[in-house]
Amino acid sequence: MGGYGDVKLLREDGLRLDGRKIDEMRPIEIEAGTLPGADGSAWVKHGLNVAVAAVYGPMEAHPRKIQRQDRCVIDVRYNMAPFSTSDRIRPGYNRRSREISKVTAEALESVVICERYPRSKIRVEIEILSAEAGTRCVGITAAAVALADAGIPMRDLLVGVASGKVEDTVVLDLDKAEDNYGQADLPVGILPNTGEIAFLQMDGDLSPDEFNLAMEYNFKAAAEIHDIMVDALKRRYEGGEN
């Protein structure tokens, strides 16, 4: 969070620079099963963010030392394509993407019924093709749809969503400018059916009341995104069984 106080992020009429209300999300489109070679896959466009996720597995966990005798491990790679941001990202080792991969994997391990696949590994590949603030949340949403598409058993469909604070006002779903010049960012991964939280990060400055309001926005948005995820999965398999 930059926290530069001199950048105007809210307009006189109370709307945000891109015309959204303070509790309004950017538009979201989701498609399931977009990569023919993967066991499960998803494409998510959220504002100007574009994330693609693929799932491979369950497969035997290699090397042996990462195997768990009683469950599977989830191996997540979150990666930003070199052309996804305005300044090119050098490919290769990157502390930020390593951290996001780690916490995303742990969030997914909390919803996947891992005990079903001892000694196995499920590979989740998240590629950000276009970035406009909030890519880790878009990545989580894409990964959840891809896991469902792959037929992996899960307790719920994990939804990634973020709220934040700009000009001392709590707002839902920060865009690029709000992320750069705002005062706080609170990305979470929500299980919409159980109301639990599997992913949590935050940076910036929030009062306890502001935190509660931001979480309220996040839960409301998660329910909306969940409907879009379910719709994407249903569209992929429309036609029905007999």
Binding site: G37, L48, V50, F83, S86, S130
Partner: peptide, 25 residues
Amino acid sequence: CLYNGEGSAKVVWGDTIIYAGVKFE
């Protein structure tokens, strides 16, 4: 087709899918 690429292309060739992006420095 990519917002942050100064030039970009997506090729779907059979089931092969490729993106390319051009950046300037």
